[in-house]
Design a protein around this nucleic acid. Structure first.
Length: 823
RNA sequence: GCGGCGGUGGCGGAACGGCAGACGCGGUGGACUCAAAAUCCAUUGUCCGAGAGGACGUGAGGGUUCGAAUCCCUCCCGCCGCACCA
């Protein structure tokens, strides 16, 4: 009988239908956590736009492999799916076409859902959710209210990024090099009243929590960087003429004696007051006005020459009583520290540049450890442990570290300063003047102020409107009937908040809703939540390293403080996947014409080949370029396995490991056990899917190499290959495994390697002379050091290279090698 | 500037103190075929050599070690994040 060809388009839908019909991947919340081991495997939820792209395929192929592996290792696995459905692209589409964003979003969701089925991803569809559904955002609003009640959600006026072309505020992440990512227009800073979440209260806990979780170092580093904790001191400089104290933050209190001038940010509220009545008043006004209208791009350029204007006043350096001149300069930022700095030109590059430009004194107060002179043309900033203070009165001679402590202690005693910590992290601006987002559940009452919408009245549903065009305020403000409402407290006239929330708010808690997705009474049942959370393995792109991952961590910590949950970190382990680049090695983009559509690949080679290839291509955390011939190679491998199943299948002979194999059969049984061991370690231990797949390829190659081996051994080896390939190519694996064993591979547990079959009677002993391989010889496993040395000595290669030399030393590594060191 | 990651055949990569280049792609030769596709087998780091074999080889240089792609130091190159953050 001629073999049937490997036709993925026929076998894949067949198994997908079985899984859908039998709801194979659904998991119950009625589990006793003491009896079953639970595992929560989660990929970042997609933003539904158009159709899924190749990065989605990689993300979900990766997560699915882990989910399948956990299941077959005996765990109950929660592996849900949902959609981050609010967001700007759908709204822009609506502005252009007039089609409601909900409609476009739902179309995309359907496409995504279709492809997830077609890819054979093992999802518990009973928990599916979308963040734009009122049943979901009702609880997003509830969380907002809880945060508001505790002062963690607040409203204040702040300098925010504003695009004058699109008439809306932008998130920091939507500003690329000072320009709007959508229209390319230069972004302005505007003072506007906005909603914030008080994430800065959690800065230290967000920092400390990183030590408790199993995340990639670079992601932890990025978060630490973003939080930007600096230890130092706050030091008070007094302006005697005005009688005002100006505190500054410094990380180098040991350089206080080198402070020769004082600089304020142009935005500092006291600048005009200070300059008033001095000869510089006019000049200061001009300078400040210019600085405030400068673009972010110009302002942020560290290379441009330092500019500034004297304020015509002095402050007192608290350590030595010196009067030092005050300046206003745009290199000092209002948003960091106190908006004013003490300038130490000898030991800070920026202060040094400014001092040179304005011919100000530069006084060295730190000397290099080796007594050499620091460079004159640049600031001496490097600080090793044993640098010492000079020109610093009673502190001279102390090391830099000692000096810091001693000076801070002195300031503290004199009431002139104290140790202090500063952060780069800012509070999270969450309000948007946009339509397609979750309404902020607040009512502004003329009498009561800001009143949260009562829990029973949630959700505040997003009303339908006609015109989505932003005009400097939320399009929701035009929905007058909706916006006008009675105050829930006094019954008087009130008006709804018309801003919506940043979509990152929606995605900061979705992983908890999955646990109890159909709960109408509460956001989650704490008992159910504690069964699944925290997520055991989270998988997604590194582009979310800061924002989404930081916000979610903040949410969990804040909710834990309200005793609404019992854990401190949402994602115990994180895996960040690399990007799939176009065949030309560049990032895929339609303008470059190098986009590989998953639909094309899946239609041509099948979902199994597409999924397996993506994981085989390179280590999953790494970026890698797509290759058409590469996916063909993986398709060939799957077809080779398929043909083995075709030839051996059918006869109800089973596929157990044959007893006492020998000859070729023994080779195959050993190779199969080697592969079990290797694949288990590679998937379970280190996410090395590429080498796991390579090991299965080796096993299949070995079966082809021994066509005359005992059929029982060949069946066992083939069934093992099918079993091991299941997490990557589930449909083919089911087909081959069923043909050989009559069983469903997902219902069988992950194979264990037989320790006896992992051992061999002999091994290839490597014979080295002076560390160079000179021969190899077969040696019995477990042989003694003496035996191995003798065996090795007798080989031709070793004798040829030892001839006439004296053996100085012999190194024997049992079961591996012998090295003769000769002179 | 600060922080992180990386540099191995023609290509993606493997090995992460013990045989460098597993596996795949690509190349070459062969089998099957009227032919092609598909499939199967062999071969494939560089140089020298007819061959046996030898020399060289993991960005550069140094060190530790019996032994280094792997550990340590110095440097070069590339990528990513943050950045006038005091």
């Amino acid at each position: 009988m001629a073999d049937r060809r490997y036709e993925p388009s026929q076998i894949e839908p067949k198994w997908q239908a079985v899984w859908e019909h039998e709801r194979t991947w659904e998991v119950s919340n009625d589990l006793d956590p003491d009896e079953v081991e639970c595992s929560y495997v989660l990929e970042m939820l997609p933003y539904p736009s158009g159709e899924p792209h190749i990065g989605h395929l990689k993300n979900y192929a990766l997560g699915d492999a882990i989910a399948h592996f956990h299941r077959r290792c005996g765990q109950r696995v929660l592996h849900p799916m949902g959609y981050d459905a609010f967001g700007l692209p759908a709204e822009n589409h609506a502005i252009k076409t007039g089609i409601h964003p909900r409609e476009a979003t739902n179309r995309s969701i359907e496409a995504y859902r279709h492809w997830f089925h077609r890819w054979g991803i093992s999802i518990d569809w009973s928990r599916e959710l979308a963040t734009d559904e009122p049943t979901y955002y009702r609880w997003t609003q509830w969380i907002f209210v809880e945060l508001f009640k505790r002062g963690l959600a607040y409203r204040k006026e702040a300098a925010v990024k504003w695009c004058p072309n699109d008439q809306t505020v932008l998130a920091n992440e939507q500003v690329i090099d000072g320009r709007c990512e959508r229209c390319g227009h230069e972004v302005e800073i505007r003072q506007l009243e906005q909603w914030f979440f008080r994430i800065t209260d959690y800065a230290d806990r967000l920092l400390d929590g990183l030590d408790e979780i199993d995340w990639p170092d670079h992601v932890k580093a990025m978060q630490r960087n973003w939080i930007g904790r600096s230890e130092g001191a706050e030091v008070t400089f007094r302006c005697e003429e005005l009688g005002v104290d100006y505190p500054v933050f410094t990380t180098r209190p040991d350089t206080l004696f080198g402070a020769t001038f004082f600089v304020m940010a142009p935005e500092h509220p006291d600048v005009f007051k200070l300059a008033a009545g001095t000869e510089h008043e006019q000049h200061v006004h001009q300078y400040v006005n210019r600085a405030l209208t400068e673009s972010l791009e110009e302002r942020g350029d560290a290379e441009k020459p330092k500019t500034g204007v004297p304020l015509g006043r002095t402050v007192t350096n608290p350590v030595n009583g010196e009067q030092i001149p005050m300046f206003v300069a745009d290199y000092v930022l209002m948003e960091y520290g106190t908006g004013a700095i003490m300038a130490v030109p000898a030991h800070d590059q920026r202060d040094h540049d400014f001092a040179r430009a304005f011919d100000l004194p530069i006084r060295q107060v730190i000397a290099p450890a080796d007594g050499s002179d620091p460079p004159e043309d640049t600031a001496f900033i490097a600080h090793s442990a044993d640098e010492v203070l000079v020109n610093s009165k009673q502190f001279s001679g102390l090391t830099s570290v000692e000096g810091r402590e001693a000076i801070v202690a002195w300031l503290d005693r004199e009431g002139l300063g104290h140790g202090s910590v500063s952060y780069k992290l800012r509070d999270w601006l969450i309000s948007r003047q946009r339509y397609w987002g979750c309404p902020i559940p607040i009512i502004h009452c003329e009498r009561c102020g800001m009143v949260p919408v009562p829990e029973d009245d949630l959700p505040v549903e997003l009303p339908d409107i006609d015109d989505y065009q932003p005009r400097g305020r939320s399009p929701l403000a035009t929905a007058e009937d909706w916006a006008q409402i009675r105050c829930p407290e006094c019954g008087g006239r009130g008006r709804r908040e018309t801003d919506t929330m940043d979509t990152f708010v929606d995605s900061s808690w979705y992983f908890m809703r999955y646990c109890d997705a159909r709960n109408d009474e509460q956001a989650w049942d704490p008992r159910v939540l504690s069964m699944w959370m925290p997520v055991d393995q989270y998988i997604g792109g590194v582009e979310h390293a800061i924002l989404h991952l930081m916000y979610s961590r903040f949410f969990v910590k804040a909710l834990a403080d309200m005793e609404l949950l019992e854990f401190q970190e949402p994602f115990q382990a994180l895996f960040t996947q690399g990007m799939i680049l176009g065949p030309d090695g560049n990032k895929m983009s339609s303008s470059k014409g190098n986009v590989i559509a998953p639909s094309t690949i899946v239609e041509r080679y099948g979902a199994d080949a597409a999924r397996t290839y993506i994981l085989f291509l390179a280590p999953a955390e790494q970026d890698a370029a797509w290759s058409d011939s590469g996916v063909e190679g993986v398709h060939r491998f799957l077809a080779r396995l398929w043909r083995l199943g075709e030839r051996m299948g059918g006869e109800a002979a089973g596929a157990d490991s044959p007893p006492d194999p020998d000859g070729d059969a023994l080779i195959l049984v050993r190779k199969a056990n080697w592969a079990i061991e290797k694949v288990t370690a590679d998937i379970g231990g280190r996410f090395a899917f590429n080498t796991a797949i390579a090991a299965i390829m080796e096993l299949v190659n070995e079966i082809y190499r021994h066509p005359e081996a005992d059929p029982a051994a060949r069946r066992f080896a083939t069934a093992t290959a099918a079993s091991l390939v299941f997490p990557f190519a589930p449909h083919l694996a089911c087909e081959v495994y069923e043909a050989l064993t009559g069983r469903r591979v997902w219902e069988t547990s992950w194979p264990d390697a037989d320790p006896e079959m992992l051992q061999t009677d002999t091994f290839e002993l490597v014979c080295q002379v002076n560390g160079k391989v000179r021969d190899r010889v077969s040696a019995p496993s477990g042989a003694s050091k003496d035996e191995l040395e003798q065996l090795c000595r007798q080989t031709r290669g070793v004798q040829a290279h030892m001839d006439g030399h004296e053996v100085a030393k012999v190194v024997v590594v049992p079961d591996k090698l012998v090295n003769f060191v000769v002179r």
